[in-house]
């Protein structure tokens, strides 16, 4: 999830700043917010929960801000020294702000003999930074790791959790380019599992397709979405396998949204719950027969496609 607004005058830390509900009406950066307190309260006060708390903060901010560690100390009742000791002990934690993308290159024994150092040198050259540093535009952080446990596939480069195996120096440019465009972006043209669907409201059978608003080059599915106090349009890509959405109001990550038909205004809600997150599923009729159900939670990719009885063209 990449914020598309100008982030310079927003929070300096959180990854979800464009969708942050706590920012509303606030000026200047907020170092930590109520969302942060939720992280701590989500864990019991036991000794072992400290690493889990730090991991969640790191996942949210990309690093461990000084204020965050102080707040963890306050809330958990443990001393700042202990928390700082844990935070500096593990390589996974960073006390310095990291870039949007974390590029790790494996320099373990197997990757080393297969040419890991040349890959690292090439990455350093193309990014213009040394190991452990962040590019000035805060896009990339580059670090070397000692083993990723996939020695047979070496040399390995990991970008934001995506593994690139048997990397050659000529592939480095592609990897960085792919990272810039988004690693989750799917190639629509080549992947046969991805195809456009046309859907209609399960109640009034009006088509939900919006031919003027195109996403991924295909007409989008237009519904009315409601969450919290917000009520506006939501356009979903009609490509089965693409998870792109556009909406009138930015929907915060993990929010469950109520879907309504723009024609009959009935709520699109089924009896099924999402198998992945438990939120209600939204059913829509697929033209040609069958039902597609998508999860109503933002960011969840849970869906059911039932084309039984569909005509095969």
């Amino acid at each position: 999830m990449t914020p598309n607004t100008d982030i310079s005058n927003l929070c300096s830390t959180c990854n979800y700043l464009a969708t942050c509900v706590y920012r509303q009406g606030r000026e200047g950066p907020i170092q930590y917010c109520e969302m942060f307190a939720e992280i701590i309260e989500g864990h019991d006060g036991s000794h072992g929960s400290l690493i889990a708390i730090l991991e969640e903060i790191q996942a949210k901010y990309g690093y461990l801000p000084q204020e965050a560690l102080k707040m963890v100390a306050d809330k958990t009742g443990r001393s700042l020294v202990d928390i700082y000791g844990v935070a500096t002990f593990y390589r996974a934690f960073s006390l310095k702000p990291r870039g949007k993308h974390l590029v790790s290159v494996c320099l373990g024994t197997a990757c080393h003999v297969r040419g890991g150092p040349t890959i690292a040198a090439e990455l350093e050259r193309q990014l213009g930074i040394k190991s452990g540093e962040t590019t000035p535009d805060k896009e990339f952080t580059f670090e070397s790791v000692n083993c990723l446990g996939a020695c047979a596939l070496g040399p390995i480069v990991v970008v934001d959790g995506h593994y690139f195996s048997k990397v050659k120096t000529s592939m480095v440019k592609d990897i960085l380019q792919k990272t810039r465009t988004g690693l989750d972006a799917v190639e629509i043209v080549t992947d046969k599992r991805i195809f456009p669907v046309e859907v209609s409201c399960a109640r009034c059978n009006h088509s939900l397709m919006d031919h003027r608003h195109k996403i991924d080059g295909y007409p989008s599915i237009r519904v009315t979405a409601s969450f919290g106090q917000q009520h506006g349009w939501l356009a979903i890509s009609s490509l089965y396998g693409s998870y792109k959405t556009e909406s009138e109001y930015e929907i915060p990550f993990k929010t469950t949204v109520h879907f309504f038909c723009p024609h009959c205004h009935a709520e699109l809600i089924g009896a099924t719950k999402c198998g992945e997150c438990g939120a209600p599923m939204v059913p829509m009729i697929v033209r040609g027969g069958g039902i597609v159900q998508i999860c109503s939670r933002k960011g969840c990719k849970g869906h059911i496609l039932d084309l039984s009885g569909a005509m095969v063209y």
Binding site: L69, L80, V81, Y84, F89, L95
Partner: peptide, 25 residues
């Protein structure tokens, strides 16, 4: 007081205050 403690790991292990600033404790 718990003002100082161990930091880091391996050859980078050191003793000092969190963030190398004077501790409130």
């Amino acid at each position: 007081a718990k003002a100082i403690g161990f930091r880091g790991r391996g050859e980078k292990r050191s003793i000092g205050t969190p963030f190398d600033i004077r501790s409130e404790q």
